[in-house]
Design a protein around this nucleic acid. Sequence first.
DNA 1: GGTCGATTCTTTTTT
DNA 2: AGAATCGACC
Length: 747
Amino acid sequence: MELNFEKELDRLNPYQREAVLDESPACVVNANVGSGKTTVLITKIQYLHHIKKVGYEDMTVLTFTNKAADEIKSRLLAAEPELPADKLRGFGTFHSTALYYLREFLPVEDLGYSKEFLVIDPEEELELAYDLIRQHKLKIKYKNRLKKRLESAMAVREAEKKVSKYQDDIFELAGLLKEEKAKQDKMTFFDLLENANFLLKEAEQKSVSPKWVIIDEVQDSDTQQLVFTDRLISRGASLFAVGDPNQVIYSWRGSAFQIFYTLKHKYQAKELTLPINYRSSTSILEAARCFLQNGSPLTGVREPGSKIIVRRQYDAFQDACYLAARMKKLHEEGISYGEMAVFYRLQSQSKIFEDVFLKEGIPFEVSLKKTVGDVPVLKWCIRLLRFSLNTKDTASGIYVLSSREYGEGISGKKAEEIVRAGQPGRSLLFDRMCGLVENCGELGNEEELFTYFELDRYLKPVSASFHEDSDAVRRLFGIMYAYVREQQAERASGMREFVNSSSLYGLDVLREDISRQEDCVKLMTIHASKGLEFSCVFITGVNHGLIPLRTGDMEGEEEERRLFFVGITRAKDHLELSYYMNPQERADPGESRYIRMIPPRLLEHGEDIGPAVSLQELKRQVQEQKRSIAARGSEQSPEQSLEQSPGQSLEQSPEQSPGQSLEQSPEQSLEQSPGQSLEQSLEQRPEQSSEQSPEQSPEQAKQQKLVRHSRYGTGVVVNEDETMLEAEFEGYGKKEFIKAFSELEYI
DNA sequence: GGTCGATTCTTTTTT
DNA sequence: AGAATCGACC
C-alpha cells in the first residue's frame, strides 16, 4: 500500500505535495484554475488513509454536485478496487451527507419526523405552500415568485421575522409550511441541511464525529453549508478545503466571496497555493491573468499556443453561421466535435445556435435545465394525469379545471365544488379524468389518449401556441406510453409511476430536436462550463451589456469578471471571442471592454465580418425550418429532425404547400426569435438584395401590390414567393422580408 | 372585472 | 429601460 502511495506522490509537483503532506489541523488550499485540485484532494484522502491510518469511514468528503462526488469516489475505487463501497458513505454532496446523518444517526423524531421521511423536490413544496395559502386564506404578494420569496423568508433569522417587507403573511406561511412538512414526513433539500445543522448542534451523543472534513470547491459554500462544516469541526474534525476565490460565480445564490478568507481566520487555517496551470496554452493564461482579482500567481507550463481570435460579427445569427463553418473545418482537421464548446451569457442565446447547427448538420448538445414544470401546457397535462390516476389528489383536479390557459376555464370555486362533490355530469373533462383508470386499457397509444380527453378542444385551438402545445402533449404522452411498455407494467400503474417521476423526464420531452451523438459540440452558459475543459472554446456575444451583463453594483461587476475568467480558462488550445455590431437585446453594439483588457499582442482579429451569408442560403434555411415544423405538426415524429445529415440539408427544394405555410405563419412570428434576427439581417443589408433568387415568379411581380411597413412606410412589391417578399420604399430602396416574420401590412 | 399609476424585478443554477 | 404585477378605484 505505502509503496503504491509513494508512486502517487511522485506524480505531484512540489506545491501539490506540500498540500498533501501538510500536518496542520486546518488547511485551505488556494487552487488556481487547472492546477490539479481534484488530484490533490484525492491524494490527500489516500495519504490520510494509508499513511495516517485514518479510516475512510472517519472522513467526510463534501462536494457541491453529484458529478464531483462521483468522480472522487470512482477515482478512489479505481486505485483501490477492493475498497468496500459502504466505507465511502460519508463521501458525497453536502445534501446527501446530511441525509445520511439524518437517517442513520440523528434524532429526527425531535423535529417531528420519522426515520422514513421522504425527500421532496421544490415543485412539491410549492404545491404544499399553495394549499396552505388557500386553506388559511393567507395574504401573499407576488405569488408567482413564491418559491424565491419562501427561500429568502426561511433564511431570515427568527428574531427578524416580525413584519415582512411586503406586509403580507409570508412568515406565517413559512411557519405553517414547516409544520405541514413535518406532519407529512417530507423534507426539502433546504430542510436536509437545516435540520442536520439543528440536530448536530443539539445532539449530545457523539454519533456523528468524523476525524476529517474535506471540502471540494469551498468557494461555493453558502451560509447553510458553512454552518454544517462548522458543526463537524466543532465536533473535533480537522479541515482540508480546496477552492479558488477567482472562480466565485455563485455569490448571488448565497456563497460569499470572502468565505475563503473567513474560513482561514475562523480556524487559523494554513493557506497553501497551487499556482501551476497544466491546462491552457500560455497565451490563454496570460489573457486570463488580466481578470484575476487577488493578484495570486498563475503560472503556465505549456507552449505559447495560437493567438486568441477576436471576431466582429453582424449579429448572433451570422456568428452561428461562421461557427458552423469553422467547426466543420476544425473537424476535418481532426479535432473531434466533443472538444469544441460554445459559451454564452444567457440561456436565451442558445436558440439561434441550435437552429443554425441543426440546419448545418453540426452535432450538438445544449446543457439546460428544463423540466415539464417550465412548460405551462405540460404542467397542466401532468396535473391532468395525476388527478386522473389518483382522484384523491383534489388539488390537481381543481388546478386542471380552473386553469385559465387550458381546459374548461371553470372558476376556482366551482371547480373545487365539482371536484369535492365528485359527481359526474357537471364537467366533461372532469368525467373523463375520473374515467381514465377504467378506460385506459382500451387507449393503446398517445393518439387515443389525446382523443379520449378531447384535448383538441381543451388546449385552446384558437391560441397562437396551439400547434406547439399539442405537439408537446403528444410527445409527453408518447414518452409515457414508451415508459409503460418498457416497464411492462399494467397500464394505469405504469402511468402512475411515470407521473410520479415526471420531473425526471422533462428533458426528454423538451429536447426532441437535439442530436444524441456522443461526439458533439457543447452549447452552454459560462456558468455551466465551470469545472469543464475543451480544446476549442468559442465565447460569443462579448458585448458590453452581455459580457459583462449590465449590473447594478460593484459586486455584480466583479462577479462578471470572474465569470469571464472562468469562461476563458476552460480553453486548452484555442480560444475565440466574438462580439456583435447589431446585438438583439440588452447589449450595446461593439466589443466589450473585457476584450480591450487583453493585451493586443495576444489577439488576432478575424475577418471583419464572417463569411457572407447569401440570401439564397437564408431562404433555404427558413424554408427548411418551416418544413420541419410543418412535418412535426402533421405526423408528430420528432425523429425526423434528429436524423438530418449535412448533405441532406444542402440541396433541398421547398416541398411545403403554400396553404400550410400561410396558416402557420402568424404563430411562428410569435414564437421564433431567430426569425426576427433573420429579418433584421436582411433589412439592414440591402446591398445583398442584388443576389436575387432564380425562383422569382414574374406574374406576382407584375401585380404592383402595395405594402406598409412600420419603419419604411408604403412600398411597392417588386418580387414575391412563398417565403420572401421584396418591396421598394421611397427613400430606402429595395428591402427583402421574410413573410412569416415581418409585420407587413398588405394594402 | 377592468383600468390606471405605482412599485418591483429583470440573469446565472445545484441539491 | 421595459415588463410584470399590485392595489386602489370605479
